[in-house]
């Protein structure tokens, strides 16, 4: 019954999805280059995550898409139309800010319909849309409250509602969960993903948290120092990182990268090459490369063994029931679990 009510609400909010395309986008400031030659496709109706460490340019990129900043060069297209020079309001997209950007002096209802009022949407329609969105977001009983009377999660929902009520096909989110506690964050991840799929929104979501990226995204755009490192589905990204940066950034603990010189089987590779193996792919047994154990971290189900192969520090993940390892172990891994990178950090195929 509840499900039926949900679907009927969704059907009323029909949004024609539109895809985004960035072509050679560059953003330079007086002293630094924030983005350099970024070319990506953000497919319509999909959940795309811009992932990277702080300062990698992902938020700048989002602000360029929103029109809050202008690129130094390059083009931004939405559904095939060039929007590079258009003001934010004419771009047909909505945005949820990290701090939610709720108007502190307005009630929840007034906050949600702020945009409709500015655009002089007819009053009856305004209230109809408000009721629909409020029901969908579970904000029914809170419409008369002010933002400071709401919990962090509720404020987050109001910010989302304000984006949804605009019925625009593209929604931009700038680290929307970073102000929430861990439990709420997990709940909101599911909720936002669910919302995006029900409404068929084109979502562009900025985060530095790989868990958010892996759990929510259809596509992940990994960024580093103003450049795109890799665009891939979460499984591809984990299974076949294109660069050593991606290999180090994704996975907890991250992929072990061992200099080819330290591994007899790979000495034939050119100088500076790296061999990557995920911690869970390494097997402790009687044969393989010799490693010196430096410590064990017990996690309950699993344990992490810190060890050293030559100069490279590595981590091995194995079930905790295996027990404590010896001081010296031999490590091996299946050939298909080996990732090879050249001296420039690019994947060798």
């Amino acid at each position: 019954m509840a499900m039926n009510a949900m679907t009927s609400i969704d059907e009323q909010i029909a949004i024609a999805a539109a895809g985004l395309r960035l072509e050679g986008v560059r953003k330079a400031y007086d002293t630094a280059v924030a983005l350099d030659n970024v070319t990506i496709d953000i497919p319509a109706g999909a959940f795309t995550v811009l992932l990277g460490p702080s300062g990698c340019g992902k938020s700048t990129l989002l602000r360029l898409i929103a029109g809050l900043d202008r690129p130094t060069s390059g083009k931004i297209l939405l559904g095939g139309n060039d929007i590079t020079r258009k003001p934010p309001a004419e771009r047909d997209l909505s945005m949820v800010f990290q701090s939610y950007a709720l108007f502190p002096h307005l009630t929840v209802a007034e906050n949600i319909i702020f945009g409709l009022r500015v655009r002089r949407v007819d009053k009856a329609e305004r209230w109809e849309r408000l009721n629909r969105v409020a029901r969908m977001m579970g904000l029914d009983g809170l419409l008369d409250r002010r933002p400071n009377q709401l919990s962090g999660g509720q404020q987050q929902r109001v910010a989302l509602a304000r984006a949804v009520i605009s019925e625009r096909p593209v929604c931009l989110m700038d680290e929307p969960l970073s102000n929430l506690d861990a439990k709420l964050r997990a709940e909101m991840r599911v909720e936002i993903r669910d919302l995006q799929q029900r409404l068929g929104l084109t979502m562009v979501y900025v985060t530095h948290d790989q868990v958010e990226a892996m759990t929510m995204a259809d596509h992940i755009v990994v960024m580093n120092q103003g450049r795109v490192e890799q665009v891939a589905r979460p499984r591809e990204l984990y299974a076949a990182p294109e660069t050593t940066f991606c290999a180090r950034f994704i996975g907890t603990p991250p992929m072990n990268l061992i200099s080819a010189r330290d591994l007899p089987a790979y000495r034939h590779l050119p100088e500076g090459s790296l061999v990557g193996v995920r911690p869970e792919d390494m097997i402790v047994d009687g044969e393989g490369v010799e490693a010196v154990v430096e410590g064990v971290e017990y996690l309950g189900a699993d344990q992490l063994i810190a060890a050293r192969i030559g100069a490279a520090k590595i981590i091995v993940r194995q079930p905790a029931r295996t027990g404590a390892p010896d001081a010296k172990v031999r490590l091996s891994w299946p050939a298909e679990a080996t990732h090879l990178f050249d001296a420039d950090g690019r994947r060798l195929h």
């Binding site: 929103a66 809050l68 934010p88 309001a89 997209l93 945005m95 702020f114 500015v118 655009r119 605009s166």
Partner: peptide
């Protein structure tokens, strides 16, 4: 960001 949020709405 209040100004930015309002700008997105065309205020």
């Amino acid at each position: 960001n209040l100004r930015e949020a309002a700008a997105l709405e065309g205020t």
